[in-house]
């Protein structure tokens, strides 16, 4: 499998990094890497959005060429559960 280089950032854009990952990685792998490396709150769930294509990446989605191209910006967004 080949690698793909892209940009990952948090929703508030206070954390941003260029990373290179194997295309066999999944969306959930990216989220986990962000949580681990940036010490994001672990009592929150996160989803992943490709800002460049305007598509959400489902957790089991591989970093296929159809979903992530070199230079794309992926944003880690919290899954919001409150409503009251």
């Amino acid at each position: 499998m080949t690698d793909v280089k892209f940009i990952i950032r948090t929703a508030d854009q206070t954390r941003k990094a260029e990373v290179e990952m194997d295309r066999s990685s999944m969306g959930s792998d990216i989220v986990q890497a962000a949580v681990d490396n940036w010490a994001l709150p672990t009592d929150t769930d996160y989803s992943l959005v490709n800002i460049s294509t305007g598509k959400s990446l489902v957790p089991s989605q591989l970093l296929d060429e159809n979903f992530v191209k070199p230079g794309d910006i992926l944003e880690v967004q919290p899954v919001l559960v409150a409503g009251t």
């Binding site: 929703a11 508030d12 854009q13 959005v49 490709n50 800002i51 305007g54 598509k55 959400s56 489902v58 957790p59 089991s60 989605q61 944003e75 967004q77």
Partner: peptide, 22 residues
């Protein structure tokens, strides 16, 4: 689709939510 809005920065993103095979 998902609209994700930041009330502090005043920004938002809109993304498509595809169907997941599993």
């Amino acid at each position: 689709r998902r609209i994700f809005a930041d009330s502090i920065a005043g920004t938002s993103t809109s993304s498509e939510l595809p169907q997941r095979a599993d």
